Computed example of a mutant assay.
Amino acid sequence: MVGGVLVLWAVATVTFFAVRLIPGDPAEAILGGPGSQTSPEALAAVRAEYGLDQPVLLQYLSQLGRLATGDLGRSYALNMDVGPLVFSQLGGTLILALLALTVAWLIALLLATWSTGRGRLARQIGSGLEIVAAALPHFWLATTLIVVFSVWWGVLPPISTMDARGLVLPVITLAIPLAGFLGQVMRESLTIALESPFVLSARARGESDRGVLWRHALRHAALPAISLSGWAFGSLISGAVVVETIFARPGLGRTLLNAVTVRDVPVVVGVVMIVALAYILMTVLTDLASRLTDPRPIRTPTGADA
């Protein structure tokens, strides 16, 4: 609990001061942007209304006070409460991230199980595919997928639509690089697990190779990848900024990018705070999943198995 609060405080602090470093005047965003040609009197009135004429430290403390009460403030550029705005975009981004995480897990699992135990050549091929996948930038992969599946073959829409077909390319774009990272971890863990004493015992009891893999080794091999899923979720949310922009998909990523462009500080802080909360929740769920998946017995303080 305390750790989560500290994370939220650190996120709010870093975001607040980072946005302040972006060139431009937030008061201009409130009045329509840099090209609005507003008078100095109007700018001064807006700064006084929103507290922008106060010292930065006072603005920071005021924002922390609002966040502590659950008030995300009011958008400078859109003139609406940040809370409803952010939550209206949250669902689309969560669906995109969770689908991408699921697809990445499936790809990593299939690649790890295929390349393990099939000789040196299979391991080298699997390792090479994982390294290439992990190194692919989202913007390059998204552009390539659009050219291939939309321009050349015409089987999938180049922009995200409201149906399932519109999710395919964005999900694949996010899933493939993540699958490379998870695959490397899972394949290495699976190789170690297959060389462990409990596998030798299972083989001695007459367990088949498939049984050894799926009933014994895979549970041990999946633990490091499950532990990384919390980090992976945060990585997917950050990747959504690029993917949602390229595929014109509504979500937190596009909302954050637009807010940063016009220095809409309340929206930027609100989006980042909601993402941080989602990340903390995902980390807790990941830790719970690791405990449930871990086949090793839990030790009590007295040393006995629970």
Rank of each mutant, 00 (worst) to 15 (best):
V11M: 09
L190N: 03
A289P: 04
A10E: 05
F139M: 06
I159E: 14
A48N: 05
A133S: 15
I159M: 13
Y50G: 01
E28D: 14
P295W: 14
P177M: 07
T302A: 15
S160W: 06
V272N: 07
R203V: 07
I237Q: 04
V185D: 04
L85N: 02
T286K: 02
L96V: 13
R165H: 05
T286D: 12
A232W: 10
E195T: 03
S196P: 10
S201D: 11
F198I: 15
L182E: 06
L141E: 09
V19P: 02
T191R: 13
V241Y: 05
D264Y: 08
P23D: 02
D163H: 00
S238V: 15
P295F: 11
A306S: 14
A304R: 08
Q89I: 06
I237N: 04
R215I: 04
L6Q: 02
D305F: 12
L85Q: 10
T102W: 13
V14S: 12
V269S: 02
A204K: 02
R66P: 03
T261Q: 13
D287A: 10
D53K: 00
W114L: 14
R263T: 05
V260G: 02
A289W: 09
G32H: 09
G3L: 12
Q63P: 02
H220V: 10
T161C: 05
A193R: 02
F181M: 14
